[in-house]
């Protein structure tokens, strides 16, 4: 069964910033989790405010960050490392955050962290499709006939998705699976919003033509 296989995205989907820019300091390796029972910092007011700000800006976004990280890395363990690195960078860079669009801010940091991580140790860009078949989703179950149609539709969509050029597939996954806004997807990939719109358009058009070629065009009023 093919439905439900997570679509993975090679790193080449991410556009890299101009060469020659040095990587941010302190980015080698992922810091171990600090001990949670350490005492609060003594220089009270300032650091407590900073802590509260971090909590309110960052904590609600961790799940999204992890989803996006899973989309742009090939391994769940890499995704977790990447988010950890992003959390650390966000803490260090908190004073530079203007308070607007926390999710886009964090996804930009995540992208930079990923580019840096990628420079440090080069994982294989093409991941093994065999281990991708392990995870399945529970199917949504309507009528038996509808189920067959849905499955056929899904597998054509999935095949079309896999055949898309990486850059197009990336955008579809970020919008429809990871549920990002256009602006957030633009931040995560480091491209202008207009690029998101046009890639999305092209990608879905290709998927749609595969659907019609397979004769699976759904009727509007069944």
């Amino acid at each position: 069964m093919r439905a439900g296989r997570p679509i993975r995205l090679p790193l080449s989907a991410i556009s890299h910033p101009r060469e020659g820019k040095p990587p941010p300091a302190g980015s080698a390796g992922v810091a171990p989790a600090p001990s949670p029972d350490s005492e609060p910092t003594p220089d009270a007011a300032g650091s407590t405010d900073r802590q509260a700000r971090y909590d309110s800006v960052v904590l609600p976004q961790i799940a999204v960050m992890l989803r996006v990280a899973t989309t742009i890395t090939s391994q769940p363990a890499d995704a977790e490392d990447l988010v950890q690195e992003t959390l650390l960078r966000a803490w260090r860079g908190l004073d530079r955050f203007d308070g607007q669009h926390p999710r886009a801010w964090l996804l930009t940091i995540l992208r930079h962290a990923e580019i840096n991580r990628h420079r440090r140790r080069r994982p294989s860009l093409l991941d093994d499709p065999a281990d991708a078949t392990e995870r399945h989703l529970a199917p949504v179950v309507p009528s038996a006939e509808q189920q067959v149609m849905d499955r056929a539709f899904d597998s054509v969509v999935e095949a079309a998705l896999i055949d898309l050029p990486t850059q197009l597939r990336a955008v579809v996954i970020l919008i429809d699976v990871d549920q990002l806004s256009y602006a957030e997807a633009a931040a995560a990939l480091g491209v202008p919003e207009g690029t998101i719109t046009s890639r999305l358009h092209r990608a879905r058009k290709r998927i749609r033509s595969r659907i019609s070629k397979a004769g699976l065009t759904p009727r509007r009023h069944p």
Partner: peptide, 21 residues
């Protein structure tokens, strides 16, 4: 195609973030 990221990973990351400050 959506798969939820593992809950344990989410918990570990949240604990990490909360401890950072």
């Amino acid at each position: 195609h959506a798969t939820e990221p593992p809950a344990e990973a989410l918990e570990r990351l949240t604990a990490f973030a909360e401890a950072l400050p």
